[in-house]
């Protein structure tokens, strides 16, 4: 039980108790995620276990009309635009912040991180009032701008973390050999921090793809995203099509998770 040889019997018993507790907590963490999967394949419109008969009817329902597939398309489009904007802005800012001469680093960092901290409803209501005045509510642009603000902290955190292990002498060497700043960035810096930038991009994508509250306040039927569709579905009339949507989202987020795990292994291998 991962104890030293001098452990007392009481210690061993205590360790087993802790281990049982930890296994229970881990089960509490993971088990609820998978409850949606069998239900999505159920034939029954009610959420009963064990599943009486398996079928694909809720998946067929999901892909039958435009209601859900439009949501998926809107989510992908919004999240992709957000990812591009957040990754470019966040990576540039990270390059500046990690330089030793950067002024006012602490307050700037506190501001860049604050979209993670400010309650989402405040961002949503503020956006609703402010973008409303600019005529940006019920537009994709407004949603992308708001999502980018929310996604930027994730890019900044991952890219600054990667840059903290980057050897600035590489930049100096390239400069001394006559490379312009842009060439230095694209041919020296970017290749070595690419895994960090890519995980930042995945985080940004996931942030936008999963966001409900701001989308609820800023969008109309035209830009309705998948999470908004799910939220209204659960609130009004929960049905197994939502289970099908949730199961597919679960597969998708697991894929994103594995992608980031692979990227962080690569960046560790690169060191």
């Amino acid at each position: 039980m991962w104890l030293p040889s001098y452990a007392t019997p009481g210690e061993r018993a205590g360790r087993i108790a802790v281990l049982v507790f930890v296994v229970a907590v881990l089960a509490f963490l993971v088990a609820p995620l998978f409850v949606v999967v069998p239900l999505s394949f159920s034939n029954d419109p009610f959420f009963t276990f064990p599943v009486p008969k398996y079928s694909m009817r809720w998946y067929e329902d999901f892909f039958a009309g435009n209601r859900w597939t439009d949501g998926v398309l809107n989510s992908f489009l919004t999240a992709s635009l957000t990812t591009v904007l957040a990754t470019v802005l966040g990576t540039m800012a990270s390059l500046g912040i990690t330089r030793p001469d950067f002024p006012w680093r602490k307050p700037v960092m506190a501001l860049l991180i604050s979209p993670m901290i400010v309650p989402i409803v405040i961002v949503a209501v503020g956006g609703y009032l402010f973008f409303g005045r600019l005529g940006l509510t019920n537009t994709r642009l407004g949603l992308v701008l708001a999502h980018t603000a929310l996604a930027v902290p994730f890019v900044v955190i991952t890219v600054t973390a990667t840059l903290s292990t980057y050897d600035a002498n590489l930049t100096r060497a390239a400069q001394s050999l006559g490379a312009t700043p842009l060439v230095v960035f694209f041919r020296v810096t970017l290749p070595s921090i690419l895994p960090g930038v890519a995980s930042g991009a995945v985080f940004a994508f996931a942030t936008s793809f999963d966001e409900v509250v701001v989308a609820l306040f800023l969008t109309g039927a035209e830009q309705r995203t998948l999470p908004v569709q799910m939220f209204s579905g659960i609130r009004d009339q929960i049905n197994p099509t939502i289970m099908a949507a949730a199961s597919m989202l679960l597969v998708f987020s697991t894929a994103l998770f594995l992608a980031v795990g692979w990227l962080s292994n690569r960046s560790r291998a690169a060191k």
């Binding site: 963490l29 996931a206 999470p227 949730a246 989202l249 679960l250 987020s253």
Partner: peptide, 8 residues
């Protein structure tokens, strides 16, 4: 769970 959509 951290990666799984909040709505899921």
């Amino acid at each position: 769970p951290l990666w799984t959509s909040l709505l899921v």
